[in-house]
């Protein structure tokens, strides 16, 4: 492993949006959360990017992994059972962007 780790840029509670990078291969960000907004729930640590790792590339850099919390009513408009229902998912740093301001 040679490259320096990607710096942590979010704190718990920060609003984020999930990017749609259109990448092929061993991608760990499902379609149903792409372009959706949520907030950082936990910093999980640094991990090798599975998209590179799946091809045997262990050169790094290490990527911060976060757990992101989404309101079910934002993921499935009109379908959610309760405002108290949430979905948590792990998302690697490069699939996230800051998303300040009110929810769309």
């Amino acid at each position: 492993m040679t490259a320096a780790p990607i710096p942590v840029r979010y704190r718990v509670g920060d609003p984020v949006a999930v990017l749609d990078l259109g990448k092929a291969g061993h991608v760990r960000t499902p379609f149903y959360v792409r372009n959706r907004r949520g907030e950082i729930a936990q910093f999980c640590g640094y991990f090798l990017n599975p998209e590179a790792l799946s091809l045997g590339d262990t050169s790094g850099p290490l990527v911060p992994l976060y757990r992101v919390r989404f309101a079910m009513k934002d993921l499935w408009p009109g379908e959610a059972r309760s405002d108290r229902d949430f979905l948590y998912m792990e998302i690697y740093d490069h699939w996230l962007r800051p998303a300040p301001g009110p929810h769309a």
Binding site: R28, T29, P30, C44, G45, F47, P50, L65, R67, M72, R81, S82, R84, D85, F86, L87, Y88, M89, E90, I91, Y92
Partner: peptide, 12 residues
Amino acid sequence: TGVHVHDSNADM
């Protein structure tokens, strides 16, 4: 009761 679903898809 709120439901929290955890989509386990990465390293956790």
